[in-house]
């Protein structure tokens, strides 16, 4: 089994465990079992090479994490659950792409580079998310609305610009 496959399974397990623990500690057993079911099904889907399942599973993980944050469950567990889900989702697609390689291709080199890249991205995401968790600023609703709209528009334009000129 390749390193990326092991890390993918680990990511799904860690994500499931973090979210399960968050809900379980808050005595929300129904939600905890739901998260556990989604996580186990994801593991099963990856084992059986049912690739389409990864995207709904990521959506479910992020939704569970967001709901958990809304009902004031531990932010560390919820963020960890979402980031681990993101890692699992990325590696699920990467392992699928690796299967298209011919036996002679340097898959281990590609795997090494991808693992390094995705680890840095995940760690950076976690660090920034962790940092922002400590920042508390009270702003009026109108300003919040304006900021969100600005963020949405800005993000859209940035994504569009990067899609067009990102490689240059």
């Amino acid at each position: 089994m390749s390193v990326s496959t092991i890390v993918m399974y680990a990511g799904i397990l860690v994500g499931t465990a973090a979210l399960y623990l968050g809900y379980f500690l808050a005595d929300l057993d129904g939600f905890a079992l739901g998260v556990l079911a989604v996580g186990l099904l994801w593991l099963l889907a990856q084992w059986k090479r049912v690739y389409w399942y990864a995207s709904p599973a990521l959506l479910a993980f992020v939704t569970a994490a967001a709901y958990g944050l809304w009902i004031s469950l531990p932010a560390s567990l919820m963020t960890l659950g979402a980031v681990a889900g993101l890692l699992g989702w990325d590696l699920a697609d990467f392992t699928r792409r690796l299967r298209t390689a011919s036996p002679k291709d340097d898959t281990s080199g590609m795997e090494r580079r991808h693992m390094a890249r995705v680890s840095i991205v995940s760690a950076l995401g976690l660090v920034i998310a962790g940092f922002t968790a400590f920042v508390r600023v009270q702003i009026p609703f109108e300003l919040a609305l304006l900021l969100v709209l600005l963020a949405a528009v800005g993000l859209t334009r940035l994504v569009a610009w990067l899609q067009r000129y990102g490689g240059e």
Partner: peptide
């Protein structure tokens, strides 16, 4: 909830 979006935006 915004903090949850940050890792996704970074990715």
């Amino acid at each position: 909830l915004l903090t949850l979006a940050i890792p996704l935006v970074v990715y």
